[in-house]
Amino acid sequence: MENLIRIPKPVYILSSASVVGQHEKNGPLGEYFDIVGDKDDTFGCDTWEKSESEMQRLALSRALNYACMKDTDLEAILAGDLLNQCAGSSYGLVSFETPFLGLFGACSTAAEALLLSSLLCSSHMTRCAAVSSSHNASAERQFRYPLEYGGQRAPTAQWTVTGSAAFISTSCKDDFAQAAHNGEPVPVITEAVIGKSIDAGITDANNMGAAMAPAAADTLLRYFRESGMQPSDFDIIMTGDLGFEGSSILCDLTATEGLDISAVHCDGGLIIYNRETQDKHAGGSGCGCSAVVLAAQALRGIRTGQIANMLFIGTGALMNPTAIQQGASIPGIAHLIRITADIV
């Protein structure tokens, strides 16, 4: 069965905005993020869950601002995060007067939201927002140990990114007339592949990269088999948050299937922190990781003309702490969208 979705009409990413915490600000991409939190990453809130919600609110407000739009101009918001019942999104976006669809795709949520919003914008709707977030403190306390617990992290463990990004997509070219747009190239979503939930048998919650890599490999192999493209046709192939371990495994897995992506592959989890100085072990992870790197690095690359054609693969480890305690392994998922540069 055909897995490659060709988006029936161009869907433009009109604007994007990123919100991050201090660790991310101190990383290599620090200067490119739109909003940075206070020194404790509380965003002025008294619980970490509220901080995460506030990040989503800030991200979407800023993205709407860049697009010169109001919340009522949007037909739908697609948003998700890592918290139970997607609390970060449902509380964070409650102040917007826009129909809301909550999503869970673990760390692949940004790609899932963009994929679905491009499908909606090219058919029944015109303008949608995609939002996702993660907060290191709220994720640690839900999935691992209390924040101040004195434990040692495994070398393969990844650091949940404190970050949120919002993307406004539209299929109406006229929207660029209002937005702050100076004729630079704009990102367009043209193709997509929906990921499969793939359980590769990894049970170690400290090695998410290994749990996600087979799903990323599967999605990429399906894409290249059906699209007829070659990795060399792309400026970058960016995975969301495979980190050091998962990135190496992905290149190994695809190479054994005859697909060499190593020359153009980069990973959000690898580039968001400085591996030498920031002590983040195998790199960044979380719904916010791929989202803020896409907004601050990849889409900026498209707008400045450095990138003309790219693949974005949001990777997620669909980990449930209860299932892990019951002995289950961790399924991974990876959604792909192709983003090209266009002149409007």
Partner: peptide, 25 residues
């Protein structure tokens, strides 16, 4: 993509960097 769970788990475990045991001790 076809893959055997056991052999993948062994491959992932084998390549994963271990905690520095001597230093930790």
């Amino acid at each position: 993509m076809q893959m055997d769970k056991n052999s993948y788990k062994k491959y992932a475990d084998a390549r994963a960097k271990k905690s520095p045991c001597a230093k930790n001790c």
